[in-house]
Design a protein around this nucleic acid. Structure first.
Lengths: 168, 168
DNA sequence: GGCTAGTTGCTAACCAAGTTAGCGATCATG
DNA sequence: CATGATCGCTAACTTGGTTAGCAACTAGCC
């Protein structure tokens, strides 16, 4: 695209400004950052559009793929179990989720996403899903292998920060 | 630590379960989703570790790259200007940002990130930056071109959802 | 069997961070 | 120099998180 002069409004070239160490100004890394930023914004916007909090939306996304209970919700969203209770309460109140007693373990509550809950997630995101599917298919198997390797590496890089004992 | 069973993640094959339309189970798309999810978690965790809200952290990230004021912060974070005022208040209180009158436009306030503010961002994320830089360099120019094309396409797909008038 | 430790999901009390509404100061335009 | 838009703020309120603590339950150990 444009090797010299980015699309940004303000001045700040790739290698200009402060030196934070490694070069984060390569086109791929910039695209990576844009992706994560845009992904976060999608969550934010879709949640508001659906009349849900971000936590509720993300919970619905998890429930649309897996069977998890409130405690696992708390772990995935990295919130307290008390907060998870509130999230589930609100989802139940809106009819997006149902609570059911767990058959084998009577401490647990099973959470079942309803059709309206699933519709809320899929409905708003469908145009994105379609575009992503089309994008993915437009790449060859070899190209996808390269992309996957990059993405997996990036996830691993992200996880560097998540590991405990990182603070010191 | 957990004698009563680990994570409850249930089975779910790539193409199993409901049919939401396009096939989102390809390795690349799964990796893409993991990336966005992990990216969001990084924000969440780093913010908490730094004693900041997510909004404050994201604001610092923006300020570490560009000169923007409270109104622009509100736009980028998609929050009200009143919320942006609060965000800046808190950042100023912690010494991460300074308010300065704008020279040319006396309605505006310039926000200047301090060294401690910059350190808060960079410090926690440095291991990630290093890993990302190393990852990026481990790919050839041709490979990076492929990856960039994929990432840009994905951002575009995300934006399908952000465009206004998407609701009805 | 019975004890003990760990997990699950909830309530209660509190607090952080967002919202809408509205205002004064300032800038840009015709 | 009036009109309208923008910027940044305050005030009052609501939402959604936190910590603390509890009863029910399961699993491991003697």
């Amino acid at each position: 695209m444009a090797p010299a002069g980015g699309p940004e409004g303000a001045h700040h070239g790739g290698a200009a400004g402060r030196d934070t160490g490694p070069d984060l100004g390569t086109p791929t890394l910039v695209a990576l950052r844009d992706l994560v930023t845009t992904g976060a914004r999608v969550n934010h916007v879709v949640a508001r559009r659906a009349g849900l909090s971000e936590s509720e939306l993300v919970t619905l996304e998890h429930l649309s793929r897996e069977q998890i209970g409130p405690a696992e919700v708390a772990r995935r969203l990295e919130v307290s179990t008390a907060a998870a209770t509130g999230i589930v309460d609100r989802l139940v109140a809106r009819g997006h989720v149902e609570r059911r007693p767990h058959a084998a373990d009577r401490r647990r509550t099973e959470l079942v996403i309803t059709d309206t809950g699933r519709g809320e997630v899929v409905g708003h995101l469908l145009p994105m899903f379609v575009a992503l599917g089309r994008l993915d298919r437009s790449f060859s198997a070899e190209e996808r292998a390269v992309v996957e390797r990059y993405l997996r590496g990036a996830v691993e890089a992200f996880e560097r920060v998540l590991e405990p004992g990182q603070d010191g």
